[in-house]
Design a protein around this nucleic acid. Structure first.
Lengths: 196, 196
DNA sequence: TAGATACAGAACAGGTTGTCCGTTATCGGA
DNA sequence: TCCGATAACGGACAACCTGTTCTGTATCTA
């Protein structure tokens, strides 16, 4: 990659992150980013088609970091088979913590939802092999709920409670979620419903 | 309320809902809504300051319906003290099912997130008194997770799995969530984490 | 060094936004 | 039924944002 391209791309990312701490994603215009990065209009559009593409690229940058070593571990040490689900969760939390400076800005306004949506896509792959469905519960529902709950845990953690350690958060998550994960036993209450 | 105002407001709501089935919330412009509703530009702005306000108003309309009888029951029959949490959950699901036609459109694109955010605000009030925190887990975390999981359950249900009954969904939800809700027993796995 | 390529800067048309105002139609109380 | 109030119309407006195009300049790489 051309050094000039790298420089410009960094300028845009930096400007975008800086702006996210001052205003919401929706209220931010491409013009704002151009002004903040101090680059030409056509230069921005040479790198990203839209503002959404920029956000997506930033998210991808972060997740590639968070999940790349994850995958590395998996390949090199057969991580998926010998490490517990809880270890992997903790591992992911560690990497998210490293990137928390970038991530915290992303929680402003609506793009927090977009960030979480992308996060869930990555998480689905990791969670899928670990979710064991108890009888009668649809597998995709359990997976959806497990992933969403973890994403919500990350949001809660990095948005005002980042003092907790990754291990602590993993413990909270496992304590509050049943999801038929091995090691957690949940018993349903089968009392018949009585709608008003 | 003036009959003309009511009529215009309905025209706007109807147009907005109709458009939501054809295009995403973000890609929709105020101009589109005006054209669809066939009203004057200034008329729209006399009713709603922005597109976001319109969305908020529509959500409020729905939630007022979903939770008003909820509150009614609570007041008239002392619902909160004699009915189980599960009954209330089922009850809410019933009302959401009634409104599913309006709600399904709201899940298109990004406004699904906004809808769910508002839903969570309402749910917090209902859930708060029912969440019993087990030792060491922060109360607001447990509440956040319980509410988010339920909101996610609603999304999953109305977005492709609406064939299930409210009772069935309540059962799934309770089966997959620990949350220290009375009637569900969860045991945490306290095995020490071993990050890669 | 030379050709390729990224950037700057300016300009453009097309669209959206929010506001204004004079006119017309409709409503609701007397 | 009448009349004052008010909601809607519709046309116009400036300001802004968008995405594209162009030319000249600076920088990179082979």
């Amino acid at each position: 990659m051309d050094r000039r391209q790298r420089r410009t791309r960094n300028l845009i990312f930096t400007a975008f992150s800086a702006l996210l701490e001052r205003k919401t994603y929706t209220s931010m215009t491409v013009q704002d980013i151009i002004d903040e990065a101090d680059i030409g209009r056509s230069t921005f559009y040479a790198h990203f088609e839209t503002k959404d593409e920029l956000l997506k690229a930033l998210c991808t940058d972060i997740f590639d970091h968070v999940f790349s070593e994850e995958i590395l571990c998996e390949e090199k040490h057969d991580f998926s088979h010998h490490s517990s689900f809880r270890d992997r969760i903790t591992h992911i939390l560690y990497h998210l913590q490293e990137k928390q400076q970038s991530i915290r800005g992303l929680f402003s306004g609506e793009c927090g939802e977009i960030f979480l949506r992308y996060l869930k896509e990555y998480l689905c792959q990791v969670f899928d092999e670990h979710i064991t469905v108890s009888e009668n519960v649809p597998h995709d529902y359990a997976l959806d709920l497990a992933v969403s709950s973890f994403a919500e845990t990350v949001r809660w953690w990095l948005k005002g409670h980042s003092a907790y350690s990754p291990e602590q958060m993993a413990a909270y998550y496992f304590q509050c979620s049943a999801f038929c994960i091995p090691g957690i036993i949940a018993r349903g209450d089968d009392k018949a419903a009585d709608p008003c």
